[in-house]
Simulated assay, not measured.
Amino acid sequence: MARFSQIRPIWFVLIIVIALAAWLASGMLGGESKPAEDDAAQANEPQPVSVSTRVSEATTVWREAELNGRTAPDRAVTLRARTAGRVRAVEAERGKRVSKGEVLVRIALDERSASRNEARAVVEQRRLQYNAVRKMSEKGYQTATDMAQAKSDLEAARAQLAQIQQDIDNTVIRAPFAGVLETRPVEVGDYVGVGDEIARVIQQDPFVVNGDLAEKDVALIEPGQPGSARLVDGRTVQGRVRYVATEADTDTRTYPVELEVDNPDGRLVSGASAKLILPLEQVSAHKVAADLLTLNEAGDMGVKTVNADDVVEFHPADIVKSGNDELWLGGLPERVRLITTGQGFVRAGDTVRVVDDATASARGAGPANTPAAAKQAPAQPAADSDSRP
């Protein structure tokens, strides 16, 4: 009896433990655990990414063609010697502004003066002979043949004098137009032959900016329309189109175009790079910051917007006009919600939670700081996350 009383409490403890374990097991396998499972599943579901947006309204702007251009003078002439001789004097230095007709170089006359005097004497002799034959012919003492011969001798003498005078005039080299004496490779004492370079004169006002138009734009440009050019020093000069080619370059399939700009102070230099900007047509476009451009999965550049259902849409970038840090994009709806923050964490078709710019700034939080964004970031292609220029 005493032995039974010692064992009995142990059995009671075992029975209680087994009953408690059975009850716990039945609760875990039963229907009462479903709410806990639903809460866990809901916690593991990816939440929509928060993005900041800005409402943009389209405006009418000019679509522009931006061409890589190069500055050039309106006229540039290389002056060459038309007679041989020794350089007697130089009247202008390199880089000097010269006026039309100004003397640049003089070549020594040498024996030309004596030849001219001799030719003048021959002309006077032939003139006297011709007058004498004409008077005798009027009296019937000279034939018509004698009259024709005398007149021919006089004209030949005059032609010889004119040739010598022209050769003398060629010893003075003058500027053909107002401009700058760019080069002058001769000095006093140099001997020049016919065809040797004497000087090069460049007309600086007006100046020209050359470019090449694409096939799709050439029909929208015509001579006389305004345009502008952005120079390497940041200045922008205005001008008018003076020439548009009607035949394409066989190698590039582009059409040369020239913009004429004023250069009264002569600050424009020849051969400098420039951006030629020509208005083409008026279109509807949105003004956006350049850093809003991103890439989609196909590698196309564009912007991302959110539609009325808070679903992301991608629009390829149709750049109508560009500024320093701004772009005007065409091909978008008249009114859109541009994603300004978080475009690198979403793709077209994703549903997002929209936060306007003012709210996002006040909260100081962006998609990159949220756990949901951190979960989805690895799924975005590398090109998309590094797409900002």
Rank of each mutant, 00 (worst) to 15 (best):
E64G: 08
A76L: 14
S56Y: 01
D38V: 13
G69M: 00
A43G: 02
Q42I: 10
Q42K: 13
P73D: 00
T60W: 05
Q42P: 09
D38F: 09
T60M: 12
V61E: 10
A41C: 04
D39V: 13
T53C: 00
E45R: 11
E66N: 06
R82K: 14
R82S: 15
A81S: 14
D39H: 01
N44H: 09
V77I: 15
R75S: 13
G69V: 02
E64M: 09
N44T: 11
E66L: 05
S52E: 07
R75D: 08
V51Y: 03
P48E: 11
R70T: 08
N68E: 01
A40H: 02
A43F: 01
R63M: 09
R82Q: 15
T53K: 00
V49N: 04
A72V: 04
E37T: 03
R82M: 14
T71K: 05
V49S: 04
G69C: 00
S52C: 10
A40M: 02
T60D: 11
R70C: 00
R82Y: 10
E37A: 08
T60V: 14
L79H: 09
A76W: 10
D38L: 12
T71G: 10
V61F: 08
S50R: 09
T78K: 06
A36S: 11
E57M: 09
D74V: 00
W62T: 11
A76K: 15
A36L: 14
R54C: 01
A81V: 13
V51H: 03
R82T: 13
A81K: 11
L79R: 10
P35T: 09
P48N: 11
N44L: 12
T71Y: 06
V51A: 09
P35V: 14
P46L: 14
T59N: 05
R54D: 03
A43L: 01
E64F: 04
A40K: 04
T59A: 10
A58N: 06
A41Q: 07
L67G: 03
T71D: 03
A58Y: 04
A65K: 02
V49H: 05
T78A: 07
V51G: 06
P35W: 11
E57F: 12
E45I: 05
R54T: 05
P73N: 01
R70G: 01
T71M: 05
A72N: 04
E64Q: 07
V61G: 10
A43R: 03
A58R: 06
R75C: 07
A41N: 04
T60E: 15
E64T: 11
P73S: 03
W62V: 10
R80Q: 11
T59G: 12
W62P: 05
E66W: 03
Q42W: 04
D74G: 04
A65W: 02
R70M: 00
S50K: 12
